[in-house]
């Protein structure tokens, strides 16, 4: 699991045009980004990592997300930009769980953005809420809960934000049809 280049893609056709600068895998990233504060901070928690298209993506286990964001905040990444999810349905195995939750985090001083990724299984998906670290995660997590049905433990008010409370289903899941009624 660790050193596998997870371009986290359902179609197993590997990157056709991976630029030479793309680096995949935890070990390769640890070597190439030895002095990087984000990589250094999350070294213990990393399960996978990639440098692709000038973007650094660090994968951590979902149980450790609170530790990861606390550490990354302490390392100077002060601004949470976004929390969103991707549904890799029908992929849903322990090595490639169905839901990918992406945290986009910015450092105002380093003028640099990183993406922290955690993947959770499709059956009763749940994560720890990071609202205790960044209050701004409140709306983002509610949106992910509403549209993907992922629960965030410890969220102060986890209710639907876009759709009516009596809505059935979570529209951004891939098994939810684009047209017609469910």
């Amino acid at each position: 699991m660790a050193d596998h280049p997870s371009s986290s893609s359902t179609s197993s056709s590997a990157n056709p045009t991976a630029e030479p600068s793309a680096i995949f895998g935890k070990q390769a990233i640890l070597e190439a980004f030895a002095g990087h504060p984000a990589v250094h901070t999350l070294e213990q928690l990393l399960i996978d990592a990639k440098w692709d298209r000038q973007e650094l993506t660090l994968s951590v286990a979902p149980q450790t997300i609170l530790d990861a964001v606390r550490a990354i905040k302490a390392a100077g990444y002060n601004f949470l930009e976004d929390v969103t999810a991707v549904d890799w349905y029908p992929t849903d195995t322990p090595s490639a769980p169905r839901f990918q939750i992406s945290y986009s985090i910015l450092s105002h001083s380093r003028k640099e953005r990183i993406r922290i990724v955690a993947r959770v299984m499709g059956d009763n998906p749940h994560m720890d809420s990071i609202t205790s670290v960044w209050p701004s995660a409140n709306f983002y997590e509610r949106e992910v809960f509403d549209l993907f049905g992922i629960h965030f433990a410890g969220h102060p008010h986890l209710t639907r934000i876009m759709l009516p409370d009596n809505w059935n289903g979570h529209p951004l899941r891939k098994d939810y049809p684009v047209e017609g009624y469910r």
Binding site: S7, A14, N15, P16, E55, V86, S104
Partner: peptide, 9 residues
């Protein structure tokens, strides 16, 4: 489009 993810800002 080649597989992958990208953020523009």
């Amino acid at each position: 489009v080649p597989a992958g993810e990208a953020t523009s800002s």
